[in-house]
């Protein structure tokens, strides 16, 4: 499992590199090489590492381990076909991790990045009503049972398309340089991660690589079913490119607009869930 974990982390970082490259090419810039995020992680591992004098030391360092730990757990759950509820629970807990990253340093930039993270969590939590929709259709939230259901009834992509849109929005909100990336907006320097340098930032890069792989792979598993490894890889790259297009052509929203749009989608999803609930269940 360790080899798979390292591969997943490297592949996630490669996807983030592809993401940056595609955005740059759409915006007519050369952009960094696709392996730039892998180089970043390696580079930060050997940089000088310190804890700011104003920081809450144990929390400042400990939160990096928590970030890597939760996404390692999510990867393990995904690989063993565990519960979708755990994976998306971890996704939401990542918001708290960002909050802790931001507040622990004492920096005003980190603090506002963390605050924005919590505000955006308020509008993203209800999006998980789409998880309930998946449960209503398949009768289970275990990934193995969901994929088994899809093998019989066909992909959920067609059966529960509004849930696909909502989950796509969740993915988009986690991609850097996107319309919802208010937590690391440039007016806050690097937002919640401004003060985390050296090995701490390398840990954060590892976490980002794992997070990207887990979220994209879970999206495909849930909505397209169990695919061969090669198709899974191709699907994740295509999904990344589509997200990059959305990020490249959409300006970053203000925090208010970001929350408003996510809340509107949530309202639509609640209506859809209500329809599914009355239509699917006797």
């Amino acid at each position: 499992m360790i080899a798979e974990l390292v591969l997943a982390m490297l592949f996630g970082l490669l996807l983030l590199g592809i993401h940056r490259k595609v955005i740059a090419r759409i915006q007519r810039r050369p952009g960094p090489p696709v392996w730039q995020e892998i180089l970043h992680a390696a580079k930060f591992s050997f940089k000088t590492t310190w804890v700011p004098a104003t920081a809450s030391g144990a929390l400042f360092a400990g939160i990096v381990l928590v970030a890597v730990g939760i996404w390692t757990a999510a990867f393990f759950v995904m690989m063993t076909g565990g519960s979708l509820l755990i994976i998306f629970g971890i996704y939401m807990l990542h918001k708290i991790v960002e909050h802790a990253f931001g507040l622990s340093s004492g920096s005003p930039y980190g603090k506002f990045g963390g605050v924005r993270s919590v505000i955006s969590a308020a509008s993203e939590i209800p999006l998980f009503v789409s998880v309930a929709v998946i449960g209503l259709f398949t009768g289970s939230l275990e990934l193995t049972e969901i994929t088994a259901w899809e093998a019989v009834h066909g992909p959920l992509f067609f059966t529960a398309f509004p849930a696909v849109v909502a989950m796509y929005l969740v993915l988009l909100s986690k991609m850097p340089f996107g319309p919802f990336s208010i937590v690391e907006s440039k007016e806050l320097v690097s937002g919640y991660k401004t003060e985390h340098f050296g090995a701490w930032r390398a840990g954060l890069e590892v976490c980002n690589g794992l997070k990207t792989t887990v979220l994209l792979a879970t999206f495909l598993l849930v909505f397209a079913g169990q695919l061969p490894v090669l198709w899974m890889v191709i699907g994740m790259i295509l999904l990344t490119v589509s997200l990059s297009f959305a990020c490249a052509v959409t300006p970053m929203l203000s925090p208010f607009d970001s929350v408003t749009i996510q809340s509107l989608v949530t309202a639509l999803m609640l209506v859809y869930a209500g329809i599914v609930f009355t239509g699917v269940l006797p």
Binding site: S56, A58, F60, G62, L103, S104, S105, G106, S107, P108
Partner: peptide, 12 residues
């Protein structure tokens, strides 16, 4: 973490 951490000094 709450037990072992000391609070940060927020900069304004």
């Amino acid at each position: 973490l709450a037990i072992v951490s000391r609070p940060e000094r927020q900069v304004d």
